[in-house]
Each structure stands twice: as structure tokens, then as C-alpha cells.
Nucleic acid binder design. Structure first.
Length: 714
DNA sequence: AGCACGCCGACT
DNA sequence: GTCGGCGTGCTC
């Protein structure tokens, strides 16, 4: 009987393709097997999703699978289901996700090579060839080269056409040269399952006892564990001891590799049962970790999103740590939200999903409290001193800096300056009412370019001529300088010349940062200036003075979560303070009464939550409505815009109750070539959502020219 | 994504 | 007339 298989490719094409399986390959192919198959005019890597012996009647001329690249054990069905659900949810191809599940096994590749023929050599020597053809033949005359290399070297857009015509003329040959790579043999069959964990005494009234019960029930259940990092880790450790009894896996997901450092001591308590896994592990270490996990020797895996794609089973517990961190929201290749991915996987595996945070997203906290999924460990009392200053920053640096910093430095303690903006930038402001010109599209304050005399939006890149007067009160607008990190460095150096200071922000060299961090730890650097980038890199509780500079600038973003983000930043900055009365949190702000700033400085989550919830209810933001953001992207702006117009129209027609905000074009987001159109939808009822997601799926199938993705905003 | 095919302007 | 640039749509 002839066998067939459905393949998915690691391409942005969300459909499967049916192939015939030659008899000699039949026995080597299972769901998850990596194969080479002809697609159009090329031969590329694909993944088997399903093997069948019957074909639905179709008009296709079926092609044969060429080659089997790797056929280890079949992927667990739970894992394949997870991949397919994740792909479906993100309107993208399962192949793109399966590519991430490959692990460190280096697969054979088919590499095309361009080879000169004897006829080609003759013509080259006779000097008959000119221009581009000659240039190309010259390059290939020495040794065979790949088209990819030629494309980089020559930068011709029409390289493929050229190659084709030269091949037809018989001057070159394009050979598909298969290069077999060493395959990493996986230990087959049963692996050692011994495990000795220091299982602690589990009190009945433990705050996490409901999680123990859920683990025992072996079915999907979600929890939110709120509380300070250290307390949380202790509870998680107890839960892990419980979860890893027989043969289950535990995944601990962190938002970024940087955060793995904070888990080192916990991991060492688990011995070889625990292992770190993330993309920065290089060759050998990665293979070792992979092998240890697949064989079952290590079953507590700590690291980043890469963990979600480990094809192991059964997974008993998935912890998403610091769930509020927006780094979990991945924008590219393929875009998906790690938190959502973790939930999909946990559901497929019948695992417990444990979201943890010291300052959870307000909507998440609300929903969790309502459904009994919340475990709040409470807050530790903060006894450091807080102080707000409404003074102008320059003025403060001139007058107050020495007064505040002097005693701290003298005591041999350290200072941290937290600033939200890099470098220098100018802006315009009305001295009367505080009006600031904003971008009409993005609603954020415009940056004033003094040299050009223009106002520029740093978000969308649009520029416009400067306004002279305030539209509100008619006063002359004044040019100010946004005091970014550079400004701060200069002023502080001027005021305190004998100080060792470090600037920690994105874009600095890795080695330089590492050097700084060492010196900060040893106390050689007394003052640190940092942006958000610095927060996860500094040790909590290590500073005696933290100065937060103008946290309110984040509130200008056109985002209903701006206030929550501002609160989180302040909260995180305050965690760097040693918690004692002699420590001080100084906030330089014009809005000390803004809830996110007031409560952020006190690290008071309950109060912030209460006020923020009230505000959200008033404006019908989540959790009191369902907000969905839609993004259409592609290289061709006309196509993207066309698709968005059609999307808007169809949404209007199909969902009359839906509130559509936008569309908004982002002309040139940083250096991206991709053009993007965004719109937001507000649903009053969450039950409408199912129909909406169904509709979006259909729409994306019909419009392959513009890629569609959507996020549910919590 | 990457490739072919097909339609237009500018060159020997 | 053809070459080669770009827009469009398909790949089992």
C-alpha cells in the first residue's frame, strides 16, 4: 500500500502539503520526522505532521518525499498538539515552531553549488563574455560557490534569473550537493529515573497547598502566585519537590537569560535534577543540557522560552516567573506570547501553570482573584524613606545632589540613578500650562531637533515644523532639553568629580557592562546610572539611595497599560534598595500624586491595584472589556493598507457591536523594512471572542500578502 | 520565504 | 525588437 504524509514547512505559509512516501522511506517516517521534499522548484526541509495510507481525492499531482533527515523517536502527541495549537493561535505555520524544537542536532542540508562547465571556461578565456556574465563566471572559475554566497557578494537582485540563463546556455551547472552532518545520537529507550530530593515537610495550611492538590489531580489548572521574589522562589521550590516525584518535568520560564543568575542557588539545591536551558548556551553545553533533559536525567529545566519547545513528556508543572514582564511578548519569527504558549502547552499536557510576580498585571490579578486561582503571599513591609521632589532636574542636581549623596558615599554605600531615557533630547514646552506638542498619530511628546528646527516623533519617525505658541494659552513655547542618561552622567561628574560611576544602558558593549557589574559588586563603583536595562542586572537590596528621574514620561505613551508599566518600573527600582530606614527612595517628578508614582514609590501593590482598577472600570479598559490588538505587516505598504481596509470593513459588517480603534499606520518603525498597520478592537462580551478568532483565521488564509497577528491585551 | 511568470520602460 | 526591473500569486 502506498503511504502518504502531510508536511509543514518552516515558511510563513500556514497550510500543510501532501506528499507520497517512497517505499524505502516508509518505515523511517513518523510524526515529527524531518524530511527533504520538493516545493515548487526547490527542495527544502519539512516536518511530518501525519502519516496516512489514504488520500482525499484531490486535483494535485503528488510529489515524492526525497529524503529522511532525522528520525528519532516520534514526537509525543501532546507536544505535536501543542505546536499545532500554538501555530493556529498565532496564525502561522507549525513548521516555524517545530524548527525551534530541533535541539542541537545538526541536520544534513542540501546545499546548491554553482559550478563552471568546460564550455564556460572556454568562453571565459576567449574573452567573449562581458559585463555581469563575465563577473559571475570569474568568481565561479576558481571553485564552486553557493548562490547564497554569490548573492551576498554581488548584491544583484536578478541573480537567480542570471544563473538560470547561464545554466541554460551550458556555461555553468547548479548541483544539489547533499552534505550529511554528524547526527547526535540520542540514548534510546529507558533512562535512569532515580531522584533524591530534599522533600520538605508539607504543612496542610501551606499557602500553596491548593497547588499540591492540583498537581495530584494531573489536570490543567492555572494559578497566580503573587509575592516578593525570594518568598516566591521558596514556595516554588517546595512545589517542585512535590511535582518531580515520579517522572514529570518541571519548566521554569524566565523573561530573559539575564534572570537565570537569580536561580543559580536554587538550581544547585536540586543537584543534577535541575539544568539551565536557553539560546545563549553554546555548542557543547547545549548538547549536554539537551541530552540530559531528553534522557530524563534532568527534569527541572530553568531558562527562557526555548524550553517550551523541548519535546519531552510528561510535563507536570510550568512556572512563568515575572509574568508581568513584557519581554514575554515576542514580535518576530514567529511572533507569539510566551505566557500564552505556556498556557497552551500546560493545557495539552494536563499540567499546572503557575504564573508568578511581585507586581502582577492588574487584569490578571483581578481574574485570578475572581476564579480562586490567586495565591497572594502578601507584601513585606517597606521601611525605607521616600521623598518626592518637584524641583527641576537641573536645579536638583545643582543644589540637592551633594546634600543627598554626600552622606551615603561617605558611609561607603552605593547610589543608583534610574532614568527612563537615553542620551539627550530636546523638546518644546509651554512655560504657562505645561503643554507639550505631541505626535498626532502616536500621541507621544515630540522631540525638538534644534539644528533642523523640526519636531520629530521618536516612535513613528514623522517630522513636522515647530509650533511657536501654545494653542491653549498662547504663550511662547520654550525649548527644553530632555535630561537623558548622557546629561545625567555629565552633570553628576561635574558635581561629584572624584566619583567612580557607571552607566548601564542598552547598546553598550557586553564586555564593558560585565566589567562594570563586577566593579559594582565589589564596591569600586559607588554610583550607577541606569535605564530599564539595568534593573535585572543589579542585585536587589544593594543600594542605600535610589533616585528615580521623572518616571512620568512613560505615562505619555498611548497605551492603557502605561500607568501599570510606570508602577512596575518604580516598584522594581525600589527593590534595589536595602530595606532599612536609613535607605532612601528619592523621586524627582512633577506628578507625585499620580497613583502609579505615589504607590510605586511605596511598592504598595494593593493600593495601586485598587485605584487602577477604578480607572479601568471608568474607561472600560481590561479587565472590564476585552481589548484585542491586530497587526498586519508586510513589505508592501499598499498591500498591507489594502488588507487593513478590507479587514476593517469586514469586521464592521460581521461584528456590528465591536468597537474598532484605528487603523494606524506605522510608517517607519526604527530601521524595519516591514510596514505595519495596527488596529485595536474592544469587545464588551468575551463570548464574542470565539467567533472573532474564527473570523481572523479565515481572513489570514485569504490574505497571504499581509501577515496578520493578534494579541489579547490583559 | 523564495521562485516563476508576466508585464512594462530603456537600451544595443 | 530584447533585457531586466518589479508586482503578483503559488508551492502538495
Amino acid at each position: 500500500m502506498t503511504a502518504y504524509c502531510h508536511l509543514t514547512f518552516p515558511l510563513p505559509v500556514n497550510q500543510t502539503f501532501l506528499y507520497r512516501l517512497p517505499d524505502e522511506l516508509k518505515n523511517r517516517v513518523r510524526p515529527g520526522t524531518v524530511v527533504i521534499a520538493p516545493l515548487g522548484s526547490r527542495k527544502i526541509k519539512g516536518y511530518v505532521l501525519e502519516v496516512t495510507d489514504s488520500v482525499p481525492g484531490s486535483g494535485f499531482q503528488l510529489k515524492d518525499v526525497c529524503e529522511v533527515l532525522e528520525s528519532g523517536p516520534a514526537l509525543p502527541p501532546e507536544f505535536l498538539n501543542f505546536i499545532q495549537k500554538l501555530a493556529l493561535r498565532n496564525l502561522s505555520s507549525p513548521g516555524l515552531f517545530l524548527e525551534q524544537a530541533e535541539g542541537p542536532v545538526r541536520l544534513a542540508e542540501i546545499k546548491p553549488q554553482v559550478i563552471i562547465t568546460s564550455k564556460g571556461k572556454e568562453e571565459l578565456q576567449s574573452g567573449e563574455l562581458k559585463g555581469k556574465n563575465r563577473e559571475l563566471l570569474d568568481l565561479v572559475s576558481q571553485r564552486a560557490l553557493s548562490p547564497v554566497f554569490l548573492k551576498k557578494k554581488l548584491k544583484w537582485r536578478d541573480l537567480n534569473a542570471k544563473l538560470k540563463s547561464l545554466e541554460q546556455a551550458g556555461l555553468i551547472e547548479i548541483k544539489q550537493k547533499a552534505r550529511k552532518a554528524k547526527s547526535l545520537a540520542l540514548p534510546p529507550g529507558q533512562a535512569p529515573r532515580q531522584l533524591s530530593l530534599p522533600v520538605g515537610f508539607l504543612a496542610e495550611d501551606s499557602p500553596v497547598s491548593s497547588i499540591f492538590q492540583a498537581l495530584q489531580a494531573m489536570k490543567f489548572q492555572r494559578f497566580l502566585l503573587a509575592g516578593e521574589a525570594q518568598k516566591r522562589q521558596e514556595e516554588i521550590f517546595k512545589i517542585i519537590s512535590q511535582a518531580v516525584d515520579g517522572e514529570g518535568y518541571v519548566f521554569i520560564l524566565l523573561p530573559e537569560i539575564e534572570q537565570t543568575k537569580r536561580w543559580l542557588s536554587y538550581a544547585s539545591r536540586l543537584g543534577s535534577t535541575a539544568v539551565f536551558y536557553h539560546s545563549r548556551l553554546s555548542g557543547k553545553k547545549r548538547s549536554e543540557a539537551w541530552e540530559s533533559i531528553i534522557s530524563g536525567k534532568s527534569r527541572v529545566v530553568i531558562g527562557t522560552r526555548a524550553i517550551l519547545f523541548l519535546p519531552v513528556k510528561p510535563v507536570r508543572l510550568i512556572v512563568v516567573d515575572e509574568v508581568q514582564n513584557e519581554l514575554y511578548d515576542l514580535a518576530e519569527n514567529p511572533p507569539f506570547d510566551v505566557r500564552e504558549g505556556a498556557q497552551i502547552r500546560a493545557k495539552e499536557e494536563g499540567a499546572v501553570l503557575l504564573l508568578t510576580s511581585s507586581c502582577p498585571p492588574v487584569s490578571l490579578y483581578y481574574h485570578s482573584a475572581g476564579s480562586g486561582e490567586l495565591i497572594d503571599l502578601g507584601q513585606t513591609d517597606r521601611c525605607y524613606t521616600r521623598q518626592f521632589s518637584r524641583q527641576d532636574l537641573s536645579h536638583w542636581l545643582q543644589e540637592e545632589l551633594k546634600v543627598e549623596a554626600g552622606p551615603v558615599l561617605q558611609a561607603g554605600r552605593q547610589i543608583f540613578f534610574f532614568i527612563n531615557r537615553k542620551g539627550y533630547a530636546g523638546y518644546l514646552v509651554c512655560p504657562g500650562c505645561g503643554y507639550v506638542p505631541r505626535c498626532p498619530a502616536c500621541q507621544i511628546p515630540l522631540i525638538f531637533d534644534k539644528k533642523k528646527g523640526e519636531l520629530v516623533c521618536r516612535y513613528c519617525g514623522q517630522s513636522m515644523s515647530r509650533q511657536e505658541t501654545c494653542p491653549g494659552c498662547g504663550r511662547q513655547l520654550k525649548a527644553g532639553r530632555i535630561k537623558g542618561s548622557q546629561f545625567l552622567v555629565e552633570r553628576i561628574k561635574k558635581a561629584l568629580p572624584d566619583l567612580n560611576l557607571a552607566l548601564l544602558e542598552e547598546g553598550e558593549e557586553k564586555s564593558k557592562i560585565e566589567g562594570y557589574l563586577k566593579k559594582i559588586k565589589s564596591g569600586k563603583i559607588q554610583l550607577v546610572i541606569g535605564t530599564e536595562y539595568a534593573l535585572p542586572r543589579l542585585s536587589p537590596g544593594s543600594f542605600s539611595l535610589v533616585v528615580v528621574i521623572e518616571p512620568e514620561i512613560g505615562l505619555n505613551l498611548p497605551d492603557f497599560k502605561a500607568s501599570e508599566q510606570t508602577f512596575i518600573r518604580l516598584f522594581k527600582a525600589s527593590e534595589l534598595l536595602a530595606n532599612r530606614p536609613s535607605s532612601k527612595l528619592m523621586v524627582i517628578t512633577s506628578m507625585p500624586d499620580q497613583p502609579s508614582i505615589k504607590y510605586g514609590a511605596q511598592a504598595d501593590y494593593p493600593s495601586f491595584y485598587r485605584e487602577e482598577l477604578e480607572y479601568r472600570q471608568l474607561l472600560k479598559y481590561p479587565p472590564f472589556s476585552l481589548l484585542v490588538s491586530l497587526t498586519l505587516s508586510g513589505h508592501n505598504l499598499r498591500r498591507v493598507a489594502g488588507a487593513s481596509r478590507q479587514l476593517g470593513e469586514e469586521l464592521n459588517e460581521r461584528f456590528p457591536a465591536l468597537e474598532i480603534i484605528g487603523p494606524k499606520v506605522k510608517p517607519r518603525l526604527w530601521k524595519k523594512v516591514q510596514k505595519e498597520v495596527k488596529l485595536y478592537l474592544r469587545l464588551a462580551e468575551s463570548k464574542e471572542f470565539f467567533a472573532l478568532s474564527q473570523f481572523l483565521e479565515d481572513f489570514s488564509h485569504q490574505h497571504s500578502q499581509a501577515r496578520l497577528s493578534y494579541r489579547i491585551l490583559l
